[in-house]
Amino acid sequence: MSTVRGGVAVTGLGVCSPGGVGVAALWEALATGRAHRPAVTAFATDGATLGAAGRVPGHTGGDGVRRALDLAGTAVREALDGVDDTGRVALVLGTTDPGAVPPRPGHFAGDLAAACAERTGLGGEAVTVANASASGAAAIAVARDLVAAGDAPAAVAGGADAVTDLAFLGLNSLRTLGPEGCRPFSSRRRGIGLSEGAAVLRLEPLDGPGAAAPLAVLAGCGLTNATDHLAAPRAEGIERAVRLALADAGLAPEDVDFVNTHGPGTRRGDTAEIAALRAVFGPRLSSVPVNSVKGVLWHLQGGAGAVEAVTCVLSLVHRAVTPTWGAEPVDPCCDGLDLVLEDRPRPLPDLRTALSVSCGLGGMNTALVFRRA
Results as ranks from 00 to 15, higher is better:
V40D: 03
T74P: 05
R88M: 00
A213W: 01
A155N: 14
V163H: 04
L203D: 01
G303N: 02
T95C: 01
G295M: 10
D165P: 06
V200I: 07
G263C: 06
G305Y: 02
V56W: 03
A235Q: 12
L218K: 07
C333A: 12
V290G: 01
L174P: 02
G19M: 08
A157T: 14
G73S: 10
G237W: 08
A52M: 14
F43L: 05
R346S: 01
G158N: 11
N365T: 06
A304K: 07
A138N: 14
R243V: 14
P38F: 04
I140Q: 02
A68P: 01
V256H: 11
A25Y: 03
P264L: 10
A309L: 00
L215D: 07
L351I: 12
G51H: 12
W298I: 03
A35Q: 06
S356R: 05
V65L: 14
T266G: 09
A320H: 04
P205I: 13
E204G: 07
S133A: 14
A272H: 07
G47L: 00
G362N: 09
V256R: 11
L251M: 14
A90C: 06
A212M: 09
G22M: 11
P105M: 07
R344C: 08
G7E: 07
L166W: 11
P283S: 08
D151H: 15
R144Y: 15
V242F: 07
E28H: 12
